[in-house]
Amino acid sequence: MELNISLAPDILFYIGSLPVTNTLIGSFVISVVIIAAMLLVKKRLKKDTPGKFQNLVEFLMSGSYDFVVSIIGSEKKAKKIFPLAFTLFIFILVANLATFIPGQAAVTFNREGESVAIFRAVMADYGMVFVMTMITVILVQIVAIAVHGPFGYMGKFFNFKSPLSFFLGLMDIVGELAKIVSLSFRLFGNIFAGEVLGSVMLFLAPFFVPLPFLFLGLLSAVVQAFVFAVLTVVFVKLASEIEEEELVEEASM
């Protein structure tokens, strides 16, 4: 048994020129599972007497919807952002929890002489996290432009009133870029570190010792899914708010 840590997901095979990695397959499988569950709920949707599964889904949805409303403060905005936030949450949650299904590490694939793990935590693939982060960040920019107008939005970053405000404007650009890095690397780093920690522990002491780390991983799996979705909502809320100064400016203009 050797310790095998790789930052990048492993390529299993190629379809045409598309390299198929283990996390790509994983994300497909998880998507299919979620879609199947949703279709099942849709098909057996009962109006007044929900079954157990429908109850669970309803509880999850209404609970997270109320939470989103409490963060963003308005039903109208919440209705628009909720599907994305909920999808992010469910997808990350299921992907993170799927890594706790035992026996995955044993399944390997022999490619060109070296063994490659078929299952890998989906969120330990920076590509997947990066895609979701970009969706969030681009959405935030679109919301900000829609609220402030294209020129008002650019004016936030390029401000020539004084050297200080110019500098602060440039720092805002850095802040927006840092958003991408921190949002994506938070999720990726946590899950990847959890995976590495788990495999190192498993490598050092296979019995009982990894258990506390598994519990910790379970906690961070849920928390990170929650944090990613909530931060998306918070960013959108911040972007969609018109600051008081601007209102004063608009009134004086």
Binding site: S70, R186, V223
Partner: peptide, 23 residues
């Protein structure tokens, strides 16, 4: 019920520095 989610969010934001270090 209100404190715990807010705590997690603020912790996640505080974590950013560690994430920059990780990067």
């Amino acid at each position: 019920g209100k404190i715990v989610p807010l705590m997690f969010v603020s912790m996640a934001i505080a974590e950013s520095t560690a994430i920059y270090a990780l990067v």
